[in-house]
Nucleic acid binder design. Structure first.
Length: 500
RNA sequence: GGCGCGGUACCCAAGUGGUAAGGGAGAGGUCUGCAAAACCUUUAUACGUGAGUUCGAUUCUCACCCGCGCCUCCA
């Protein structure tokens, strides 16, 4: 089945096929790096990650550009407030963004580019627009002349031609000919960073960077452009206008937008202050994989209501999946194989692929994999599972996880890597970090932690104690480990441990 | 006002013109030195409200109610 995607431009689900060859060229509006990105932002980045992962899964080559807006009112204001050069200020948040991406298992795009590294391309593009009569200079700034581009409004599906102009917007603030006109290049202000250009010193407007950067790396026409639904207007509408006016060609084939994250019936946003960053959630004891799972579990065109209960549920769901994989790899089964069972695994694979084919319906893909998990478990419990059946189930699971990327139990390792957790050595003195979260769930307490080696050592000791009938010692070790945030499970395949 | 998204069990959430996936929670059970965990089973005469089309609608049409977003910076 071909992949079908909902296109905001046509308002229809369309069969996807790359414009040229086997390569998908896609562009993503990245963050403005003046603060930590919040998980609402990451919902969009995660949706894009699922998109690119599934396109790869389907056999396409990906050429993906993500921009970093490192010059705008906010970055300038904040860097000046801290008395730091703009570049140094934004470096900090770019680094944080990259860390968060790794924590959330976001694949690295082929091009991750700072806006300020593409100023010449922007200037060129603006010059072209001026030359072609789509832009005009005024008081040192350059504006796009919306009236010169009749197709304006095609993405928003609004006819702007009859809209009154100048009445509502304070048109005297700028010297624009028309209130709808938007700025391509802003004249330099006293004390602000600027670049020298043929139209005078200044800095780029918000929209031009995305046109210039996408065209630089992907060409004048490319396959997919995506972002949050709040970017449809004016940002993406303006991008289309600028790009198509300059090139005379269609800009983008498929526009994809994700709905917002909702908190207490409001959009999560920086301006409302109702946001959580990944750091916030990690510090409350939640695992990055749970955040990824939650944000990816609801198809991108539906609003997603963020709650701590939801995060907790996500964590439980991942555990169920990981538990199944543990059984699958560690338990021993009788020799032989069961074609019926293996067919179940193949069916599950087809079903999850069919779900993702359908405009990335992640919920359906999730359902398919859980069906398989239940059937697999049942077969194991009944003794019907055979050694030869492992492969089929593992294969489906592995394929599924190429998209979802939550099965690897590496949260702890990542938290250590990024400095959220300090390794500790003393078992009995390890503090019990109980973090109450908003919903009363007990946080994982990942403040300090034992190393894997130390845990394994204690488990070996406990095993010996149990074999010798010394249950007092065995239980003591179990209790101490639990206090240190490590849960032991005695399974048929031996003692298994995991971190809370 | 314009444009868009949504209203499915206690919570989250798929889906279909022919009678409701999946996850969490709850309940029951299996396993176990104990415990925990795990696993299994189970939980919607019902899909915002009212009409209409139909042999039949949660799924189509119309109206209405409610929540959210965009229309200004915003993923």
């Amino acid at each position: 089945m071909p992949i079908r995607l909902y296109n905001t431009l046509t308002r229809q689900i369309e069969e996807f096929k790359p414009l040229e060859g086997n390569t998908v060229r896609m562009y993503t509006c990245g963050p403005t790096v003046y603060a930590y990105a919040h998980i609402g932002n990451f919902r969009t980045f995660l949706f894009q990650d699922v998109l690119r992962r599934y396109l790869k899964y389907a056999g396409y080559e990906i050429r993906h550009v993500v921009n970093l807006t490192d010059v705008d009112d906010n970055t300038i204001r904040n860097s000046q407030a801290e008395n730091v050069p703009l570049r140094a200020y934004t470096d900090k948040y770019i680094e944080a963004f990259l860390d968060d991406r790794q924590l959330l298992n976001l694949e690295e795009p082929e091009y991750l580019v700072r806006a300020t590294d593409c100023i010449p391309e922007m200037v060129q593009l603006i010059q072209k627009l001026v030359d072609k009569g789509f832009a005009y200079l005024s008081e040192g700034s350059v504006y796009f002349k919306v009236a010169a581009f009749p197709a304006y409004g095609q993405l928003t599906h609004v006819d702007f031609s009859g809209v009154r102009t100048g009445a509502r917007v304070d048109s005297d603030k700028y010297d624009k000919e028309n209130a709808r006109d938007f700025v391509l290049w802003k004249a330099a202000k006293e004390g602000e960073p600027f670049w020298e250009t043929p139209f005078g010193p200044g800095r780029p407007g918000w929209h031009i960077e995305c046109s210039a950067m996408s065209m630089k790396f992907l060409g004048e026409t490319f396959d997919i452009h995506s972002g949050g639904s709040d970017l449809i207007f004016p940002h993406h509408e303006n991008e289309i206008a600028q790009s198509e006016a300059a090139s005379g060609k269609p800009f983008v084939k498929v526009w994809m937008h994700s709905e917002h994250l909702i908190v207490n019936n409001e959009k999560m946003s920086k301006s409302l202050g109702n946001f959580y960053t990944l750091r916030d959630l990690i510090n409350k004891g939640y695992k990055p994989s749970a955040v990824r799972y939650l944000l990816v579990s609801v198809p991108h065109r539906k609003p997603l209501n963020f709650t701590f209960d939801g995060l907790h549920q996500a964590q439980q769901s991942i555990d169920r999946l990981r538990n199944f994989r543990f059984r699958l790899t560690k338990e021993s089964f009788p020799a032989g194989e069961s074609l019926t069972l293996q067919n179940r695994a193949h069916e599950a694979r087809q079903k999850f692929e069919a779900g993702l084919d359908d405009n990335l319906n992640t919920a359906e893909a999730l359902g398919a994999i859980f069906d398989m998990v239940r059937d697999g478990n049942t077969a194991m419990d009944r003794g019907e599972f055979r050694e030869g059946d492992r492969g089929a189930f593992l294969d489906t699971l592995e394929r599924w996880d190429r998209i979802f990327a939550v099965l690897e139990d590496d949260d702890h390792a990542k938290l250590v890597k990024f400095g959220f957790v300090k390794p500790s050595t003393a078992v009995d003195s390890a503090p019990v970090a109980v973090n109450e979260t908003g919903n009363g769930h007990q946080g994982a307490g990942l403040i300090e932690s034992l190393s894997d080696e130390e845990i394994e050592k204690l488990i070996a000791e406990r095993k010996a104690a149990r074999l010798g009938g010394n249950y007092a010692r065995s239980d003591e070790i179990r209790t101490n480990l639990l206090k240190a945030g490590v849960i032991l499970e005695d399974t048929k395949a031996g003692t298994r441990w995991k971190r809370k």
